[in-house]
Design a protein around this nucleic acid. Structure first.
Lengths: 351, 351
DNA sequence: ATTAGCACTCTATGTCAAAGAGTGCTAATT
DNA sequence: AATTAGCACTCTTTGACATAGAGTGCTAAT
């Protein structure tokens, strides 16, 4: 699959041009816009060659060429240079990332803001998955008696994540007893990892069928739920951006995409799985792991706390997107989010 | 604006028919489908009359009639009978509302589920605004020392709402001191309403510039934030449903609508304001308080805890929607949500 | 190996006619 | 006086057809 220099240049020109204008591009237009030093007939031959290799195609005989998914693949792997970005974009990035909202305290707000940030700068839908906290360990459980048999359970991890659950007991219990039980759990569970405490609770539960049996049981169940519910959340921002691009003039296509957006769980799985490794990944059209999105492309990256990858983010848009810019935006946002969350996690450390 | 019985029947027939089929309806089709006991010519005269009164219009001379917004208004106010619903819908409602998801513990999940419930049954986008809790009173504040100068503040109301905030102190503080301060606050603030405790904290803050000055200050700030952040949230479910209806084949129109969906704050204001009163409200086309939605209709209602209205919910869809069914669905969902939340609030009471 | 030239293909656009749906008016009927 | 039959008129939709334009692919010449 080696392409000589000239063929590469033609392929690049076709794809650049198609990305910019969205219309199939023919040999005449091509030599007018780019200077290859050869005639249109030669370009035609080259294009035919590229088509045979699977990088280009044309919608019908008398139309110009457009890239195939394979063509885009080659383009991204070998042809685009990430370095020479327009300063324009760089400025815009810095400007927008200084705006308020990204600085806010609220994790939820930050996620939402980040997804919107991605969307506005990439003109695609922005997707951010909230961080998992691999460092999280048991810190504290608090029980608050609300009314009668209703008790609020509050679960705190060492990273400051808080989850709560309402439980109904069979019989009333005093706040004093609750405090006692809480102190007991704190002692037994301190510093254990989130994964481990469930087992430990289970052990305790079987070991001693004591006064707090029922409460213990509920605590166990809660810890399980906390584990499940804390499963990462998916934030989608600026979905309406994708409606801008003419490829989605077809309403049916768009509906499929938006349906996929609504099934956040599926999206989560796909995004989570696909970004085990480092760096930015691009899924083009049919490469897309989600069937509903095979007409789209996805550019995804990951953000981290220290050395650990703690979350995923990216954009979803038409296959014909400005890959160069979008890759840069995703990369930038990933770093930005890493920094912002890093601040958050580090801030309280002893200095 | 009095219409005689026959005119009413014709208007109703036209609107019913248009809602069902989406195509303008002419005099011939009308007399074939409904039996008025008069000829098409007479019906034509009646239609012309209705048009002059502003209830009907036609897209061009040789097309049939379609309802105007005013026509829909009259239809909803005077012509549709809510009672005689199809048993079909009733069955469907009961069936879907028994499904899991609506029973879950998580408030956030419940809201999301409810919005989806509305969407699937109405074939419109479902909107639910999370409840404000007028009954909420101070219950407990817990401080958890995470690392060094970082302290997690957890705020609990009597209704079981939990909010948390991370604060950075200037100097380290022991968990023991934090517990002391927490106990102090519990004593000082117990049973006060959420609105009042902020003032009370402020008083305390000025009164005693003691050891906990900084902590108190942060607590005050947190209480303020909690108040603001707890502002109702907007949940939109099944937005892709509206793409089904042919009136949104126009992508530009759809984009406007989806942009409006993204600006949840605006949506919140409008929905909140419009449902001060009781019962179901319908906004038709240009009646819509949101400019971006003037091509749409909104059916909104409110849900309650006891006698207090605590939240709003509804659907947004094309002006040509199945009002009768949709109104019923919104009403049903409002009651359902009232019941589910009622259970939640009541469950812990002493029995 | 490159290129000029040309036949060929397919789309996009515009025009035209015919069919169909529906109206509004008039004159006749009840 | 209200209703109706009848008819001319209007406007959209559809399909057929011609034309212009863009672009290819092939062949033969360079």
């Amino acid at each position: 699959m080696e392409l000589d220099e000239r063929n590469k240049r033609v392929l690049q020109a076709v794809i650049d041009s198609y990305i910019a204008n969205g219309s199939p591009i023919g040999s005449n237009v091509l030599i007018k816009r780019y200077d290859f030093g050869v005639s249109s007939a030669t370009v035609r031959n080259i294009m035919a060659e590229l088509e045979e290799m699977g990088y280009l195609t044309h919608p019908h005989t008398s139309a110009g060429r457009i890239p195939t998914d394979l063509g885009y693949r080659y383009y991204i792997d070998s042809l685009i240079s990430i370095e020479n970005d327009s300063d324009d974009l760089e400025d815009q990035l810095r400007q927008v990332s200084d705006a308020p909202g990204l600085q806010g305290e609220d994790l939820e707000g930050l996620m939402q803001e980040a997804s919107r940030f991605l969307a506005t700068l990439s003109h695609c839908a922005g997707v951010v998955i909230s961080p998992v906290e691999p460092e999280g360990r048991y810190k504290h459980i608090e029980f608050v008696r609300l009314r009668g048999r209703q008790v609020l359970l509050i679960f705190v991890t060492s990273t400051g994540m808080v989850q709560n659950k309402l439980i109904d007991l069979d019989e009333s219990i005093t706040q004093h007893d609750l405090n006692y039980f809480s102190a007991y759990l704190d002692e037994e569970l301190e510093h254990w990892t989130l994964a481990d405490i469930r087992q430990r609770l289970l052990d305790k539960l079987q070991e001693e069928k004591l006064l707090f049996g029922r409460l213990m049981e509920e605590t166990y169940r809660a810890s399980q739920e906390v584990h499940e519910r804390d499963a990462e959340k998916v934030y989608i921002g600026g979905a309406s951006q994708v409606m801008e691009s003419p490829e989605f003039a077809n309403v049916e296509k768009m509906r499929t995409l938006f349906k996929a957006f609504e099934d956040k769980y599926k999206l989560l799985k796909v995004l989570d799985r696909s970004v085990a490794a480092d760096g930015i990944k691009v899924f083009i059209g049919s490469e897309n792991p989600l069937y509903e999105m095979q007409g789209c492309s996805m550019v995804v990256g990951s953000y981290r706390a220290g050395t650990n990858i703690i979350g995923t983010l990216g954009v979803i848009g038409p296959t014909r997107m400005q890959y160069k810019q979008v890759i840069h935006v995703v990369d930038y946002t990933a770093r930005l989010l890493s920094r912002l969350l890093g601040e958050r996690y580090q801030r309280g450390l002893d200095r």
